[in-house]
C-alpha cells in the first residue's frame, strides 16, 4: 500500500483510457472492414479509396469495387464529394470562428483584466453566463432571433454567428486565466517610463498573452468543429457542417467512409496537439 501509493488511481486511469478509446478503436476497426455491416468480415482498405474517390481516377475506383455498377460507382464519388464539402464547411467555419472570437475575446479579456470602466460588472456577468447555460438555449434563442426579428436567411453566416456566440465565453475565460498569472506592475512600470498605450499593447501585453490567445484560438476551433446542437438550429439549406452531415447519415447507418474519415481526423488531432504544444513551448522561451 505504502510502496505504491497511486496503484488504485493508476488502475482507474488506465481503465478510463480504455473506456475512452473503445469507441475510437471500434471506428478504426470498422474502417478496415470488408463489408458494410457491424460484423467483421475481413480486412480491406477499400473505404479509404471511396472516401477519396472524388480525386481518384474512375477506373481505379471501379477496380477496387468490381461488384458495383456505373450508377453505384457514381454514387460513391458523389458521397465522397459531399463528405469533403462538409469537412470544408466545418473547417472554414471553425477557422473563422476562431479568428473572430479570439480577437474579440482577447481585447475583451485585456479590458476586463486591467481596466476600469462603467459597465465592467455588467459585462463580467453577461459574458460568462452563456458558459453556464445549456447550448440548446443558445441555439433556440438565436434561431428565433434570426428568423423572427432579423428575418435573416439561414446560411453559413448564421452558423458562424452562432458558433462565435458560444465560443466567446470560453475564449475569454482561457485568456483571462492567462492574464491573471501576469504581474500588472510591469505595465505600470512601462507607463511610468513613458510608454504609449500602443507600445504597451504590442510590446508587452500581446507577447505575454500570446500563449493564452493561441490556447483560446485552439479552444474555439475545437468547440466549433465539434458543435452539433447550435448548428442544427441555425443552419440553412445545403451547407451542412460535418457533425450535421454525419447526423443526417445515421438514418441509413453511417457509411464506412465516415469511419475512414474519422481515422484521419484522429491523426490530424494528434499532430495538431503535438505541434501546438511545441509551438507554445517555443513561444514560452
Amino acid at each position: 500500500m505504502i510502496k505504491k501509493p497511486h496503484a488504485l488511481s493508476r488502475r482507474i486511469y488506465w481503465l478510463t483510457v480504455v473506456f475512452l478509446f473503445l469507441p475510437l478503436a471500434v471506428l478504426m476497426l470498422y474502417s478496415f472492414n470488408a463489408s458494410r455491416s457491424f460484423k467483421f468480415s475481413g480486412f480491406s482498405i477499400k473505404w479509404y479509396y471511396s472516401l477519396f474517390s472524388r480525386w481518384i481516377a474512375p477506373e481505379k475506383i471501379a477496380a477496387v469495387f468490381p461488384e458495383l455498377g456505373a450508377r453505384e460507382l457514381a454514387q460513391i464519388v458523389e458521397r465522397s464529394k459531399n463528405i469533403w464539402t462538409a469537412v470544408r464547411n466545418s473547417f472554414a467555419i471553425a477557422f473563422a470562428t476562431g479568428l473572430v472570437s479570439t480577437v474579440i475575446g482577447a481585447l475583451g479579456a485585456i479590458g476586463l483584466s486591467w481596466y476600469r470602466f462603467s459597465y465592467k460588472k455588467f459585462l463580467q456577468g453577461v459574458s460568462f453566463v452563456p458558459l453556464l447555460l445549456p447550448e440548446i438555449i443558445t441555439g433556440v434563442s438565436l434561431l428565433i432571433f434570426f428568423s423572427s426579428i432579423l428575418r435573416l436567411k439561414l446560411s453559413l453566416i448564421t452558423v458562424l454567428i452562432g458558433h462565435i456566440s458560444f465560443c466567446l465565453p470560453f475564449v475569454l475565460l482561457i485568456i483571462i486565466a492567462r492574464l491573471e498569472e501576469f504581474d500588472y506592475s510591469i505595465i505600470e512600470a512601462a507607463r511610468d517610463l513613458g510608454a504609449r498605450e500602443r507600445d504597451i499593447l504590442f510590446r508587452i501585453i500581446l507577447p505575454i498573452s500570446a500563449p493564452g490567445i493561441l490556447a483560446g484560438f485552439v479552444g474555439a476551433l475545437t468547440l466549433s468543429l465539434e458543435d452539433f446542437v447550435v448548428t442544427v438550429f441555425v443552419q440553412g439549406a445545403n451547407s451542412p457542417t460535418l457533425p450535421v452531415f454525419i447526423h443526417s447519415l445515421i438514418k441509413r447507418g453511417v457509411p464506412p467512409e465516415i469511419n475512414a474519415l474519422s481515422v484521419f481526423l484522429i491523426l490530424f488531432t494528434v499532430v495538431l496537439i503535438l505541434s501546438i504544444r511545441n509551438f507554445i513551448k517555443y513561444i514560452g522561451k
Binding site: V17, L22, L24, L27, H247, S262
Partner: peptide
C-alpha cells in the same frame, strides 16, 4: 490520452 477522444466528433462517438 484523455484529451484526444474528445476531439473526435461527438456524433461519431455516439454512433460507435
Amino acid at each position: 490520452l484523455v484529451v484526444i477522444p474528445f476531439w473526435v466528433n461527438l456524433l461519431l462517438r455516439v454512433y460507435a
